[in-house]
């Protein structure tokens, strides 16, 4: 089952790996991203950050959907990480049982404005977050566990 679902434009990186993994204590980490599938160096970087004793799988979004539908994942505690809220919505629309979305960092891009530490949203992001909130219910901005979470609804 999906124990924790996070949006982070840096996917799995030092600070997140240590603090969130320590907090969540997952059995497995699933990185779901299309672009990374063609990028061996980026995959390598993620494999390097993987904490000991935790299984790591890197898949495209559709590969991740397939994996999450596999009965063997039922007994696992999976920490899913995607890069963008758009990818989050794609996944959430195809997989059941995701009850909370944590948003860590969203990259600055054209037309985006800063709404919190390391979180830049443009109109498309806002609309996507709105749909995520409708679909999942609980959507929060929280970079690291020590930060106070901020409900996405407060920005709508």
């Amino acid at each position: 089952m999906v124990r924790f679902f996070r949006v982070d434009e840096r996917l799995l990186h030092g600070q997140v790996a240590v603090t969130w993994v320590s907090q969540i204590a997952p059995t497995s980490i699933l990185i779901a991203n299309d672009e990374i599938m063609e990028n061996e160096i980026a995959k390598m970087a993620i494999k390097m950050v993987k904490p000991n004793g935790i299984n790591l799988a890197i898949r495209s979004i559709s590969g991740a959907v397939e994996l999450l539908k596999d009965k063997r994942t039922e007994k696992l505690q999976i920490f899913v990480i995607v890069k963008t809220v758009q990818d989050a919505l794609r996944l959430v629309n195809q997989v059941d049982g995701i009850t909370h979305i944590n948003i860590g960092g969203i990259r600055k891009k054209e037309g985006s404005r800063l709404i919190g530490a390391a979180v830049y949203v443009n109109d498309d992001d806002m609309e996507t977050i709105r749909q995520l909130t409708q679909k999942v219910g609980s959507v929060e901005f929280q970079m690291v566990p020590a930060d106070r979470p901020k409900a996405a609804e407060s920005l709508m």
Partner: peptide
């Protein structure tokens, strides 16, 4: 790493 593949959750 190329030969190792993309990992498994279990």
């Amino acid at each position: 790493s190329d030969q190792e593949g993309d990992g498994e959750l279990w």
